[in-house]
Amino acid sequence: MPSLTKKFPTRKTKNSGAGFRAAALGAAATALTLALTGCTQLETTAPSAVRAQAAGAPAPFGTVDCRKAKCIALTFDAGPSEHSARLLDILKREQVPATFFLLGKRHIEKYPELVRRMADEGHELASHTWTHRNLTDLSPEEIREELRRPNEEIRRLTGRTPTLMRPPQGRTDDTVHKICRELGLAEVLWSVTAKDYKTNDSALITQRVLDQSSRDGIILLHDLYDGTVPAVPGIIKALKERGYVFVTVPQLLAPGKAEPGKVYR
């Protein structure tokens, strides 16, 4: 039987930036093989593998069965931002759920009403850490603090505790896996990136997403950049025309579930 996981070579890199900056977010969307770091090979699991492991289970009531449907997941990092209300309007109009990997400092803190709205409108809320520091550069206690604080704020605002996180710049290692396991968090990477940190050209962002999209894709976008939200209607329209069904990351894995400490892509 073939392995249900994929392995990617990783290397250790250092980041001189301690806080959240646009440049740091730019590096987050560089080629995945450069963004993933650690002391060992990184093992990631594809959505289809998660579903295969739960082959005998029924699909949850009221959700899309991605074993049959051509599913794809829209994900947005580093919000909420001043653009998030407009994005939520678009998603509501198009009846498209998304997964939001929220940043704590200056984002969850600044826009608590948008966090509540995201939850109320059926989107999946997840963590993108508190300050966007590279987790592989931090001590175990610092990693715990980066992951604990956004979870506590999201739970306080919505009554729900996130079960997913996305490491800044996609950088992770064995220590991060271990602490995520302790905190009940699974790591989610991406298979499609628009590199929206490099351009405000919405047409270019749209084309980059469409060029890379395939079944079970996880699309990485950032709703804080000026060109990204205007690109979303075109992305949704074109992918729907290609037969895609938009789902959250947990729906993409269903009837399987993400396991804490594991990495999904």
Rank of each mutant, 00 (worst) to 15 (best):
F8M: 08
F8D: 01
K14M: 03
G17D: 13
G19K: 14
R21A: 14
A24V: 15
T30G: 15
A31C: 11
T37M: 00
L42I: 09
E43W: 01
E43A: 06
P47T: 01
P47V: 02
A49N: 07
A55H: 10
P58V: 00
P60I: 11
V64P: 03
D65H: 13
D65A: 15
K68S: 09
A69D: 07
C71W: 12
I72G: 00
A73G: 06
L74A: 14
T75Y: 14
F76K: 14
G79F: 07
G79M: 06
S81A: 11
E82R: 15
H83P: 02
H83K: 12
L88M: 14
D89N: 12
L91Q: 07
K92E: 10
L102T: 05
E109P: 08
P112R: 13
L114P: 04
L114W: 05
L114M: 09
R116K: 15
A119S: 11
A119P: 04
E124T: 13
A126G: 06
A126V: 00
A126Y: 04
A126D: 07
T131I: 08
S139N: 01
P140M: 08
E146H: 07
R148K: 11
E153C: 04
I154G: 02
T158A: 03
R160E: 13
M165A: 15
R166Y: 01
P167Q: 08
T172R: 09
D173G: 15
D173E: 15
D174E: 14
T175E: 09
H177A: 03
H177D: 03
H177P: 00
V188S: 00
W190C: 10
W190Q: 02
S191Q: 06
K195N: 13
K198V: 02
S202E: 07
L204H: 03
T206H: 11
R208Y: 07
L210A: 09
L210S: 10
D211R: 06
S214Y: 12
D216P: 02
G217I: 04
L220V: 00
H222P: 13
Y225G: 11
Y225D: 13
G227E: 00
K237C: 05
A238W: 05
A238R: 09
R242Q: 13
G243Q: 03
G243W: 05
Y244G: 02
Y244P: 00
V247R: 00
V249G: 00
P250C: 04
L252G: 02
E259Q: 14
K262N: 09
V263E: 11
